[in-house]
Design a binder for these strands. Sequence first.
DNA 1: GATCTGGTTCGATGACTGTCAAGATAGAGG
DNA 2: CCTCTATCTTGACAGTCATCGAACCAGATC
Lengths: 125, 125
Amino acid sequence: MSKQGAEVVGCCSPLARQPLTAEQSSELARVFKAMGDPVRLRLLSLIASHAGGEACVCDLTDVFDLSGPTISHHLKVLREAGLISGERRGTWVYYLVRRELLATVAAVLVPGEDRAPADHAGSPS
Amino acid sequence: MSKQGAEVVGCCSPLARQPLTAEQSSELARVFKAMGDPVRLRLLSLIASHAGGEACVCDLTDVFDLSGPTISHHLKVLREAGLISGERRGTWVYYLVRRELLATVAAVLVPGEDRAPADHAGSPS
DNA sequence: GATCTGGTTCGATGACTGTCAAGATAGAGG
DNA sequence: CCTCTATCTTGACAGTCATCGAACCAGATC
């Protein structure tokens, strides 16, 4: 409940502005790969849209036709990508979505104006 | 040079608003999975940031330490995800980024208020 | 401590994916 | 038609991934 994989927040400017370096694309790809699975994407949306902005694993497991270990595995992937963070409270473990990473990723996709805390470390070539 | 896989444009509301259905997450995951590879992400950024908004394969191949077939494969994946579209002009094939899909995807990630240039097809579902 | 319940880790397995070499296809120019 | 260049397709192989059952850990409650 501690490992925070990629730290991509504020990593790069929008795709259309300038090409990504090999390193930037590797970091970003890790995040996209984590989101590149239907189950994980749905988990993400379930957590994000859950009351209070957080959900316990027990809320998530029932939604799918998958075993507990599998759900746990997907949550771990999301966690290591930095997309969610988990916290144990008593018997249950609660997960919440790390919004700032989503915002950063979104800012990379579109020629962001407002929202983007995008690029320091902008390598002005 | 015609297959346009996913048509996700205007498919769903932001993650934090309401959970994705199984079908929505499958469609979206296809797009994210396509972006979940460093090479493809870099290809995407190279095309997007190239002069004129398009790039021919010959411009892309030299950047990587990969064989032609491999680049071609990655371009196909991006194409089938709907992220790029290609057009043959004489001897060369030019690719360009389908911006509206990027905008849609970005709109799913953040609680779109101001942002959303996700023009037509607003799916108020 | 014993036990129950909620979650995670481990190990195995079948499916998918990135990569390349070799062959095929499409225009251009002889 | 033949050849040359740019690109794509095919087939094969190694590595990665999603999934499960079994075993394990953490609190709570007896």
